[in-house]
């Protein structure tokens, strides 16, 4: 299904001044129709386990279940309703709001081309049962979920970090994980290769060397807001409050010394030579 088009102008710059924890508007939830494939799927599922909530979103059935029922629910849908493919599974970090993760399974019925999303909410320290015996594609997805989110998975055949190095600490896709890494991440390669003693010799990472500080009087300043070299910071603040702005001049405006303006008129030869 195609998503509606939203204008993407300025989307990169916006990231700097919009709230990181802005909550996106919810997509409308419609009730599940009384008959049809989805109604039958829902009936088959509610006969086997408890359905906490079910609705249609963008024409797709979404079912909330208890995390303990995940194997029962997926087994029912796979064996009785032929949802034979697990096309996607992962977790969403809701640690700040609700103290846990929302794990979702996106399953596909290859005969009817219908998709169902099964969602369940696990607390931070609660483990979820592996669905690897039902769907082989869950193998790496569950490892990734453990690696990047820290959702524990029970009875997984080989629960090892998938993306980050094996000796990594922390789960980087959690919203509380700093983008530039915690102390462990920032010194990871130095500690690992040279040992902690080398930290003093190598020094901290120089991140964002292109950053322009408007109060820096030694290197680059913002164009039009240049400040006199060596001015103490208090005076710079005062200058700014007074609104001191260096006018931006371009060479072309007043002509350049000893350089004649370009003659815009083309020269036409009278005759071919």
């Amino acid at each position: 299904m195609m998503r509606p088009y939203t204008p993407k102008d300025n989307v990169q710059a916006k990231a700097y001044y919009t709230d990181r924890f802005w909550v996106a508007p919810r997509i409308a939830e419609e009730p599940v129709p009384k008959e049809g494939i989805y109604a039958e799927d829902l009936d088959a599922l509610s006969a086997k386990c408890k359905v906490l909530k079910a609705y249609i979103q963008r024409g797709q059935l979404v079912i909330h279940i208890d995390p303990k029922d995940n194997i029962t629910a997926l087994k029912t849908l796979k064996e009785e309703r032929w949802y034979e493919m697990l096309s996607e599974m992962s977790a969403v970090d809701f640690l700040a709001e609700r103290g846990g993760f929302e794990v979702f399974y996106q399953i596909l019925n290859l005969n009817t081309a219908q998709r169902i999303r099964i969602k369940c909410f696990v607390d931070e320290n609660e483990a979820i049962e592996s669905v690897n015996p039902l769907y082989r594609s869950a193998d790496w997805a569950e490892r990734e979920m453990w690696d990047l989110m820290g959702v524990k998975v029970n009875n997984h055949p080989y629960l090892k970090r998938l993306i980050m190095p094996d000796d990594w600490e922390g789960h980087p896709l959690r919203k509380t994980y700093p983008l530039e890494g915690d102390e462990f991440a920032q010194w990871y390669e130095v500690d690992k290769i040279f040992g902690k003693e080398a930290r003093d010799i190598i020094g901290p990472e120089n991140r964002d060397p292109a950053r322009i500080d408007r109060y820096d009087t030694e290197r680059f300043a913002r164009l039009g807001h240049e400040v006199p070299r060596g001015t103490p910071p208090e005076e710079l603040k005062k200058l700014e409050e007074e609104g001191v702005v260096t006018p931006v001049r371009y060479q072309e405006e007043e002509g350049v010394f000893l350089v004649k303006d370009l003659n815009e008129e083309p020269k036409v030869l009278d005759k071919r030579k």
Binding site: P172, E180, G181, A185, V190, I202, E205, N206
Partner: peptide, 18 residues
């Protein structure tokens, strides 16, 4: 040289650290 645009936890900020 510097980690480039990848100012993140997973990128070495310049191979000269290694």
């Amino acid at each position: 040289n510097t980690g480039g645009m990848f100012n993140t936890y997973a990128t070495v900020q310049g191979v000269d650290r290694i």
